[in-house]
Design a protein around this nucleic acid. Sequence first.
DNA 1: ATAGGGTTAG
Length: 782
Amino acid sequence: MYAALGDVAAARAAFACLPERDVVAWTALVGAYADAGELGEAFELFETMQESGVRPDVISWNTLVSGFARNGDLRAALHLFDEMRLRGVKPGVNSWNCIISGCVQNARYDEALSIFCEMCESESPDAVTVASILPACTGLMALGIGKQLHSYVIRCGIKLNVYIGSSLIGMYSECGEFGYARSVFAAIEEKNATVWNELIRSYINEERMNEAWEAFRLMKENGLQPDTITYNSFIAAYARAGQKEQAYTLLSNMVEIGLKPNVVSMNALISGLHHHGRHADALEAFRYMQVSSDGEAKGWALPGNSIQPNGTTITSVLSLLTDLRLDRLGKEVHCYAFRSGLISNIFVSSKLVDLYGKTGDVGTADKVFRRISNKNVVTWNSILASYRQNRKPEIALKLFHEMIKSNLLPNLVTLQIALLSSGMTMALQHGRELHGYIRKNWPDGYPTALASALIDMYGKCGKIEDARLVFECTDEKDIATWNAIMSAYLLHRIPGEVKKLFKYIEQSGIQPDPVTFIILLSACKQEGSMEEARRYFYSMEDVYGIQPTLKHYTCMVDIMGTAGLLEESLELIQKMQLEPDGCLWSILLKACKLHSNLEIGEKAAKALFELEPNNTSNYMSLSNIYADNGLWESTEALRVAMTEQGLNVERQCSRLYLGTDVHTFEAGDSSHPAFEKILSTWNDLSDRMEQSGYPPQDIEPYSNAEADPLSCQHTERIALCYGLISVRVHDPIRISKNFRMCMECHSSIKFISRDMNREIFVSDGCTYHHFQNGACSCGDMW
DNA sequence: ATAGGGTTAG
């Protein structure tokens, strides 16, 4: 009795008074401790029972197994289940039910199903088994197995009770089989609130709100009171639809009829509104339940109620703060997660890695990542994406290999990030290895999303033919596939092919997306065909119903500005319905420089620095403009202004790819073992350039270690020299650097490509240069 | 003495 009441101490006292302790008494005590979550104690009692000569029977084992499983230690539960069989105790149907429901409760649906199959070899599943395994089918969207279980229930004459019935409705409704869901509902003789809730949810899932409310009314008519879960389902529906007022009305309705909104109600509000893009409203909902640092409730809208955030809350909120780039509040939530222990929730910790990665603090992202003990694929994907987004793709690739070594299987997202990272670093060999891996794991054709990522990778690695091959071999092309091949041609400066591909798109009736037009407009820019760009730009809305975004306007300003139509560009900016951003102004600024239009140029610069006072790259581009015009004093003034504002400029560095090895050359760093050789190689080249009549190269590659961070520090020359020494003669040299190349480097590499007869690729964050025979694919425009 | 359903999340 005490065990059932959850009073462990009383149960223990009662147990101590027993004159005789049989297996039933011992097991009851073990169960009491297991229920209380005191697993260590439960296990010790189990041992003590055996030491005192009482042999555990099958129910004792079941008690222990389910105790561990329910308290989240599935590993131990599985181990005990094996141990039981090793000790010659044959598991009964109940034992199988214990371990299966344990797996399901821990969301290990695949494991649950395989144990279920094992069970079917020796036992017949009963009503409890079916009710336990059905949620696994729902979780895996395994409609086929679910249907088989349904027919098993009918065939064996198992009564369609509320447990099996509600699980079946849930399964069918989750799999989109609403008709089946309704007929199961009709077949349940004694319906309870759960069954009605499932029916309502099936209507909500089908977006039939009128029927959902009709069911709500009928539920009451049949004498069943809607409960918190009923209301939460409606709240979630309205929040997802962005209907904040309706959702809040339901909250107060709940309170009026004496129901307490719980943490799920609030989570539904937060995540629903967030998904609908109502970020401010979602944040407001969280503030209602926010807890201050001393643990006191700051103010929950409904008096007398304070709802503690749980793992789901924190996950949703972190996701929201990431989208809003509110890293300061994110840190507060991080502290809260730490204090409350929610940090051990894998959803929470993965989201934290995401947050820090997306807000540019990859160092903290890495620290959080390292401390996660139960890393899964999503955790790894988060850290890989963080490094990639923070322009450290070579670390992303290194971690990818670490992940493989730790025996975790990469998923589609992992492979996408790895391919993107390979493309970014031009790590062709990595990319090829990934391609091999993908072919091996999807022998009958891989998902289209991976095809697009492969096309992107080959394009960025300079292998346009391979990109084309993957494109041609992809049967089910979606718009992303087309965009990928088009942007590969764009990268290789073959705008004619981009437009040709778009013609196919038009002819085959595929709907282009906003990205398609960015690529198209950029192709027009490469060709300098302004009229065509205009036509595409206006056809977006008129023909395809796509609203131009800021990026499209930026392309247009770029093209028109380059063509010298500065007044018209400014007009376009002023006429558009969108707020111009820094990027748009900086493009206009560049065009103004090109045509020496100081008047509009100053307007653009003023707007730019107002918008992004802390963006170092803006100063970079302005500095480049000054430098190109020989305005050294202005460059210096800019550098002083930046120092005064405490801005740090990212160190310049170039990377050279040798197979899967990456050599990094940072500005001012002469620690490379081949330093002397690099220097002498450069001196030789310098001499040869001078003899050939190239303009004198007055910049020593290592001389300006502490120099102005805004001027090019020519790290690509160092990388190139090392490449000339170490890359096999007929292999291309691949370099990527984090800043735009300067004019001098560009012309000297052109020279070297002819003089040394080498193929050289340089990606400089602005564009992609392919040097061959003294020419560059960028046509000297970048 | 053991086992069964529903709302929120990447």
